[in-house]
């Protein structure tokens, strides 16, 4: 069986073909422009992962929320659980870019880190 996957690792969006044997093993991966495409396609047929970018509520900041992202890709099926955990979190201003806002979100071992500064009001 050949599975066609669009690599979303970068804006090139390469169309990658993964050849899978009857026992579910990966026989070949073609169409990717770079190594990251191979890894992405491999993960996509075994355990798909996604990066997550969202916001966390800030108390006492010049903005109500500060943007954040997952330090690494999260298992795709856990994205909505992680959203819930992140939306119930509150952080106090000031927040600095790179601060860990939620550690080990939903037991995934992945941290949620601030992607901008939010000075105190």
């Amino acid at each position: 069986m050949i599975k066609n996957i669009t690599c979303v690792t970068c804006p090139m969006g390469c169309s990658v073909n993964v050849e899978i044997s009857e026992t579910g093993e990966i026989i070949s991966i073609t169409g990717n422009t770079c190594k990251r495409g191979d890894l992405y396609a491999r993960n996509e047929v075994t355990h798909p992962k996604r990066s997550l970018a969202t916001t966390v509520r800030v108390e006492g900041g010049v903005y109500n929320v500060v943007p954040c992202k997952s330090s690494e890709d999260l298992p795709k099926e856990k994205i909505f659980d992680c959203m819930q955990a992140i939306n119930s979190a509150r952080v106090n201003a000031p927040v600095k870019l790179g601060d860990i806002l939620v550690a080990d979100v939903c037991g995934t071992g992945v941290n949620i880190i601030a992607t901008n500064h939010c000075p105190a009001k």
Binding site: T9, C10, S51, A53, P67, L97, T115, N116, H117
Partner: peptide, 10 residues
């Protein structure tokens, strides 16, 4: 690198 918009701007 994979940056968000605010990180790129920063």
């Amino acid at each position: 690198e994979q940056l968000s918009g605010p990180e790129y701007a920063d």
